[in-house]
Computed example of a mutant assay.
Amino acid sequence: MATSHEIKCINKSDRYNIHERILRIGGINNNGTIWRLSLAEAIEAIENDKWTFYVNNIYGQKVNVIIAKTSTGNKYLKTEADTTEKNNLLELPECK
């Protein structure tokens, strides 16, 4: 069964294509250590049912992160639809 992890930060490229925009995601483990994954590692973890990811939107609501595909078949991460029009994932701060 997959374990759930909150994404607290991302690293973005300077590209505008949605499948090239996020390079890495990151968060904090229960023990306080920092974790980071590349986009490919995160997608693989979701597909293999190893981990699931979520973000908290501006209202503090948990929003699941899912895999989406462009019309050309490129995979990328996005959040499920919620009550805000903001892009919950791309609005996160940059990982340091």
Rank of each mutant, 00 (worst) to 15 (best):
87 N>F: 11
2 A>L: 11
29 N>T: 11
12 K>M: 10
82 D>G: 03
31 N>A: 09
92 L>T: 04
72 T>W: 04
65 V>C: 06
1 M>G: 13
94 E>D: 01
74 N>T: 08
7 I>D: 00
57 N>V: 13
92 L>C: 07
60 G>K: 07
89 L>H: 08
18 I>H: 01
78 K>M: 05
82 D>K: 00
71 S>P: 04
91 E>S: 13
82 D>V: 02
9 C>H: 06
41 E>F: 00
86 K>Q: 10
8 K>P: 00
50 K>G: 05
30 N>D: 05
80 E>I: 07
29 N>M: 10
81 A>Q: 08
82 D>Q: 05
91 E>T: 15
19 H>C: 14
93 P>L: 01
52 T>S: 10
11 N>Y: 04
92 L>Y: 03
44 E>R: 02
38 S>V: 05
12 K>G: 04
69 K>P: 00
52 T>P: 08
40 A>P: 09
6 E>C: 07
44 E>S: 11
87 N>G: 01
29 N>R: 12
22 I>C: 00
17 N>M: 08
10 I>S: 04
49 D>W: 15
13 S>Q: 07
70 T>W: 02
28 I>C: 13
8 K>H: 05
93 P>M: 05
95 C>N: 09
7 I>T: 01
48 N>L: 03
36 R>N: 09
9 C>V: 02
2 A>C: 13
62 K>N: 03
77 L>R: 01
95 C>I: 12
59 Y>D: 09
54 Y>T: 03
77 L>C: 05
58 I>K: 15
73 G>V: 10
5 H>V: 06
29 N>W: 13
8 K>E: 14
86 K>T: 14
76 Y>I: 11
19 H>V: 00
46 I>W: 03
49 D>H: 08
41 E>S: 13
11 N>G: 12
73 G>W: 10
43 I>Q: 06
76 Y>P: 07
8 K>V: 12
2 A>T: 14
57 N>W: 05
89 L>C: 11
44 E>M: 09
85 E>W: 02
95 C>F: 14
86 K>H: 08
17 N>Y: 07
59 Y>I: 13
37 L>D: 03
55 V>R: 11
91 E>C: 05
68 A>C: 13
93 P>Y: 08
59 Y>W: 14
23 L>H: 08
84 T>E: 06
62 K>S: 07
36 R>T: 14
91 E>G: 09
33 T>L: 12
82 D>T: 00
22 I>H: 02
6 E>Q: 10
48 N>Y: 01
31 N>D: 15
62 K>W: 10
21 R>T: 14
29 N>A: 13
17 N>T: 15
37 L>T: 02
69 K>N: 10
77 L>H: 04
65 V>Q: 06
62 K>Y: 12
12 K>N: 03
95 C>D: 09
72 T>M: 07
22 I>S: 00
55 V>G: 01
24 R>T: 14
36 R>E: 10
19 H>Q: 07
85 E>F: 10
24 R>N: 06
31 N>L: 11
28 I>L: 13
51 W>F: 12
16 Y>E: 05
41 E>Y: 01
71 S>I: 12
32 G>I: 12
94 E>Y: 14
27 G>L: 15
24 R>V: 05
68 A>Y: 06
23 L>K: 10
11 N>E: 15
